[in-house]
């Protein structure tokens, strides 16, 4: 049986996630001030400059949703450096869920482009729910469906919620 791993933004979700079928849930706060050696550091950049700056930071493990309404913050050079530095690219389901109908169109477009680029350059992609409450949580099967919605194959989407996070945990020796 596969060990599904998810990242959540609230401690309440940790126990509930196990009922949904996750074997491990990691609680992470998205804060620029709380970067530490002992935990997985996820950063969500607000501009292309910030995402480039964060790439130089050795402590960062996941760069989350590097895009805004206008487009992606990253290019192939960025992805190659991220690959060398073992920094993963993250996509959060909660961002898509919270968006209204019209914003979802643009968001889905950017997420699909990001997924295609990362897959093409063989980068490390992590899918996460990043739920702030239990109603934003989804089962592993539903996260795989979300991956398929973004253009990944079933095997690739499964890899993004099993082996990719496992690799980060191993690197951080948590």
């Amino acid at each position: 049986m596969k060990a599904f791993i998810d990242f959540v933004a609230s401690e309440d979700c940790v126990s509930f996630g196990k009922k949904l079928g996750f074997s491990r849930l990691l609680f992470n706060e998205l804060s620029r001030d709380k970067i530490s050696k002992t935990k997985i550091n996820i950063i969500s950049p607000k501009s292309p400059e910030e995402s480039k700056r964060q790439l130089r930071n050795k402590m960062i493990d996941i760069i989350l949703d590097p895009f805004d309404k206008r487009g992606l913050f990253i290019d192939s050079a960025f992805l190659n450096i991220a690959k060398q530095k073992q920094i993963s690219i993250g996509i959060s389901f909660s961002k898509f869920l919270r968006a209204d109908e019209n914003s979802r169109i643009r968001l889905l477009h950017n997420m699909r482009r990001l997924t295609a680029l990362v897959s093409k350059l063989k980068g490390d992609l992590v899918l996460m729910s990043l739920a702030a409450e239990i109603y934003e949580m989804r089962s592993p099967e539903q996260l795989i469906l979300f991956g398929e919605m973004l253009g990944l194959s079933r095997a690739q989407a499964t890899w993004c919620i099993t082996e990719s996070p496992k690799g980060i945990i191993r690197r951080k020796s948590l």
Binding site: L97, Q142, F146
Partner: peptide, 23 residues
């Protein structure tokens, strides 16, 4: 089937009650 399952996972509320659909 796949598209409908994807759509179901995007439901956030039913008659102003926060909820989610577990397949």
């Amino acid at each position: 089937l796949k598209q409908v399952e994807q759509a179901l996972s995007l439901i956030r509320e039913i008659s102003f009650n926060k909820c989610f659909v577990h397949i």
